[in-house]
Design a protein around this nucleic acid. Sequence first.
DNA 1: GTGAAAGCGCTAACAC
DNA 2: GTGTTAGCGCTTTCAC
Lengths: 353, 353
Amino acid sequence: MGATIRDVARDAGVSVATVSRLINRTGRVRDDTARRVQAAIDRLGFRPNAIGRTLSTARTRTLGVVIPSLSNPVFAEAVAGITTEAKAQGYTLMFTSTEYASAEEQPLVGALLDYQVEGLILTVADAADSPVLDRLDHDAVPYVLIYNQPTERGRPTVTVDNVTAGREVAGMLVDLGHERLAMVSGRLAASDRARARRDGFVAEATARGLPPPRVLEVDFVDLDADAALAPLIADRATAPTALFCSNDLLAISVIGALGRLGLGVPGDVSVIGFDGIAVGAQLHPTLATVTQPSREMGRVATTRLLARLAGEEAAAATLLPHGLRLGESAGPAAKPCPAAPQTPFHHNGRSAS
Amino acid sequence: MGATIRDVARDAGVSVATVSRLINRTGRVRDDTARRVQAAIDRLGFRPNAIGRTLSTARTRTLGVVIPSLSNPVFAEAVAGITTEAKAQGYTLMFTSTEYASAEEQPLVGALLDYQVEGLILTVADAADSPVLDRLDHDAVPYVLIYNQPTERGRPTVTVDNVTAGREVAGMLVDLGHERLAMVSGRLAASDRARARRDGFVAEATARGLPPPRVLEVDFVDLDADAALAPLIADRATAPTALFCSNDLLAISVIGALGRLGLGVPGDVSVIGFDGIAVGAQLHPTLATVTQPSREMGRVATTRLLARLAGEEAAAATLLPHGLRLGESAGPAAKPCPAAPQTPFHHNGRSAS
DNA sequence: GTGAAAGCGCTAACAC
DNA sequence: GTGTTAGCGCTTTCAC
């Protein structure tokens, strides 16, 4: 299809080395030679073949990205941030997704490595117990995680403080007068961050003197929310009055299911999600949620990875600030204290971690 | 980092040709030789370098993807479909986005071509007038568009029938008793599909005897919907009773703005979007919209591109069926005929195109 | 069935 | 300043 560096050299009557020097600005080229070469380049529409270049430089200037799914806006937004930053730094992305099948992580990463990506940005099921990360560590392949929990082994990750955020959610709900809390989560085995959110949530609830909240684990992909929730709320007298969902997409499904099951939100039950996807603010009731700076997380992860490639050392975990967005889907508990309306609740959600 | 084919050959005491034959299943290798080579491969953890392979085969098995933005779920969903299908066919994706800057299309595509992607899937601002597509055509680079309008030059695209869909929206609103229609669209110059939707909408409205609907063009990125809409609805007596928005994200913004401006949806004004992003069904009121099979569009585009790479010819445009989802955000016109409530409206939206 | 060697497009010594 | 040449990791004739 395209012309090669040899074609250009021939056309300009110089050697390939001169052409190479010109296009890479490595080494001096006389002015009139440069003009002749440039003319040949333009005439032939020559663009250097990045593959050929890679083979001799051993540098691809590509990054690999592996996330669970682009259908979840929280990941799409992070990838948007990665894209922006990578582009700005002259890197190109190779992208793929596991569709929440953690067994896919290994082969997909392998495929990207075959293409010699210089580093990877990924979200895995469980950063602390991950064959694919073991292999990356072993092979000294640079990578940065996003969303994943910090690990004892100090794996590099860019995320928010999920435990503290979970605690804040529980605290907020207790402050609103709720006494029967529960959590609805995707498969905990497939999400270290969901576990962290639960841990914080349960810890704070019990610290506030409540019994340990029930945790309902559901299959996030192809979820029948109605069927999953029915048992939880069967007995209205003991049903939770507040539900913490491990992510916004799940929270939205839950609110829909509750409606179909005859429960109003937040009238009968408060619901709060996690992620802060943009659309949550447009729902009615607006979705109460813990916000993560997803786009920024993608940007920062890219910056960190590139710094790493440049030889810089960096801390294991970069914790970005989360926020608590008190949407209409979470409100005061109705039953317990009808005579004591809460004062307007203010919480900026800035954790101190 | 990794072992090369030469390392394997040396370790197994054979030539690189034999190793190559084994890993590619091209040519026969004696059983015991194969075992020895396989053992060496396993011992060294050898994985063929795709870059080296590319250089000699002139095939990368990579596809390039360029879309406006991953922040818009309609594109994220399409890319999810592309990812799935490409993966299934053994192709890897190189991804980038323009963030709605059409001037970026050319350089970004150029960067992907430098990496020798075998073909491209993209959404451009205007398929009929596109420097980047001119160049791809000229260089005979295989590509398939998604979302873009079919062109006279027969550029390959996978989309829905935007004109017919636009007509159906107008027809539906007229059937609901609306007489003052308007459209709110992103920059028409930056979206051939928005123009098509408008054309159908305006044509049908006038065909039904209405004056040509006003078309309000807004800046989709960083939009101040309140300010943009205020003039349109300043005079309640002449303000439109139904608003067709060129995409769902815009429709959601518009509904929010209308609320802040004191207009209820659909009580005071009906709003209908375009795209069918998943979250629309969760809004309150649920979003009336024209649905596109985005994920499927991504899948089909990938299939078509791969067929093209395999040498198959194909029709220029693949039109996938759209649907009309009559959400709560669009309802009967309140004012004109208070005495003639519409019968429940049924419309399956399957166009006959 | 196996090996030797050329070559894919480029960069980087190394000469001149 | 410029040219020659040896690779980078792989596939693929062509011999044997």
